[in-house]
C-alpha cells in the first residue's frame, strides 16, 4: 500500500516544529525583536502561492477574480519581505560590542 503524500508533508511539518522549538530557544533574548521581524519576513514566502495564482490566467484572462486576489497578495507579501528583511538588517547593524579603546 502506498503512503499518502500528505503524511510526508505532515512529517516535515512536525519535525520543523521541533527544529523551530530548539532553534528559537537558542536565540538570545536581546535579539527577540529582530527575531520577530525576520520571522515576519520569512513567513511571507506565502508569496509563492500568490505568484501561482497571479500567473494562472492566460493572456486573455490575466485579470480574473482569482488572479486579482493573487496580485494583491503578491504586493502584501512583498511589503513584508522587503520591509521585514531590511528592518531586521537595520536593527542588527546597530548591535555593537564595547569598543576596546575605552
Amino acid at each position: 500500500m502506498e503512503i499518502d503524500p500528505f503524511i510526508f508533508r505532515l512529517s516535515i511539518f512536525i519535525l520543523s516544529i521541533f527544529i523551530g522549538y530548539y532553534v528559537v530557544w537558542s536565540v538570545t533574548p536581546s535579539l527577540h525583536t529582530p527575531l520577530m521581524s525576520v520571522t515576519n519576513a520569512i513567513s511571507s514566502v506565502i508569496i509563492v502561492g500568490a505568484i501561482i495564482a497571479g500567473l494562472a490566467g492566460n493572456s486573455d484572462t490575466i485579470f480574473n477574480t482569482s488572479s486579482i486576489f493573487g496580485f494583491l497578495a503578491i504586493s502584501l507579501a512583498a511589503i513584508n519581505i522587503f520591509g521585514g528583511f531590511l528592518v531586521t538588517q537595520r536593527m542588527l547593524a546597530m548591535y555593537k560590542k564595547k569598543k576596546k579603546d575605552k
Binding site: 516544529i17 520571522t39 513567513s43 506565502i46
Partner: peptide, 8 residues
C-alpha cells in the same frame, strides 16, 4: 511554506 510556517 510548510517548514517556514512551522518555524514561525
Amino acid at each position: 511554506l510548510i517548514i517556514t510556517g512551522a518555524l514561525v
